[in-house]
Write a protein that binds this DNA or RNA. Structure first.
Lengths: 149, 149
DNA sequence: GCACAGTCATTTGTGTACAAACGAGTTACG
DNA sequence: CGTAACTCGTTTGTACACAAATGACTGTGC
């Protein structure tokens, strides 16, 4: 029943490899679509988070995106420099700050509404398939979380 | 039937986000397991490819891993400096070269046999689930390939 | 033979991703 | 109170990932 170690290496190659390739590939599809908006994929995720629920504290945003603060910090800085988001002090805690889209950031949302249909059209995959994939990935993420505990 | 654009943004957030988070998360699981071997995840994928089928020309390796030559180049350089792989000239074409594991690279394979079981144990997911995920991801990759054409 | 388009790997520049160390602010304990 | 432990965001250093430009080699057409 146990696969031979040799085969395990091969399967391992297929799974972890497929995950990395699929991730890079899909992000690549987003790249050409997001490029006219002046956003990278992580920057797009930040805007999605803030469009959905602003203001958010820096830490809350990092937790939502499951991104290391050290990674998020320069991304936030670039979005501020682009004039899409702005930081406001948080009353009672000088260490942190809250982030919200600027007026320009909200305007960008109108153009961003065209992104998901463009991606789906480009991928040519039915929406149900994507939702199934999302659920499958949610299990992987849950497994990773358990592993980290 | 068509979801409202607002919902599309939300779903989009869930899917592209889940893919990125799952990819980073799984690679994170590998990180702690590969660290004692002195390998990063991309470096591990290079070694898997060469253990499975050496020698490989640089271009063949890049295609196999679906990695940009500009990305692969420094990875190969680091593995050479680590003494795990070596390059040999290709007769009849001065532009490229072939890569193979060194004796030390083959020795490392013995230790690497323990990696897949460790990952599976850490994730706590049944092997069948991982194979299903692999197949699901293969479809996504195929869709990305069609999109790129 | 020989220009010339094509292929090959590398380099450069920008943008993540993460570990580790840091400095400023906050909380809790004695 | 006051300091020790903790939390916060940032910085530094290393390693991908990709676009664009580069320089070296190859093959073709004339």
């Amino acid at each position: 029943m146990d696969p031979l170690p040799e085969d395990a290496l091969e399967l391992d190659r297929q799974v972890c490899f497929a995950l990395a390739v699929a991730s890079r590939g899909v992000i690549g599809v987003y790249r050409s679509i997001l490029e006219p908006l002046g956003l990278t994929h992580p920057q797009y995720l930040v805007m999605l988070a803030l469009w959905g629920d602003a203001p958010l504290r820096f830490r809350e945003l990092a937790d939502t995106l499951r991104l290391d603060p050290a990674t998020l910090s320069p991304i936030v800085k670039r979005l501020e420099q682009s004039g899409l988001i702005e930081r406001a002090p948080v009353e009672g805690d000088e260490r942190t700050f809250a982030l919200s889209p600027t007026a320009q950031g909200w305007e960008l949302r109108e153009r961003a509404l065209a992104v998901p249909p463009a991606v789906i059209e480009r991928l040519g995959m039915p929406v149900e398939r994507l939702m199934a994939l999302r659920d499958e990935l949610a299990e992987v993420i849950a497994a990773v979380d358990r592993a980290g505990a």
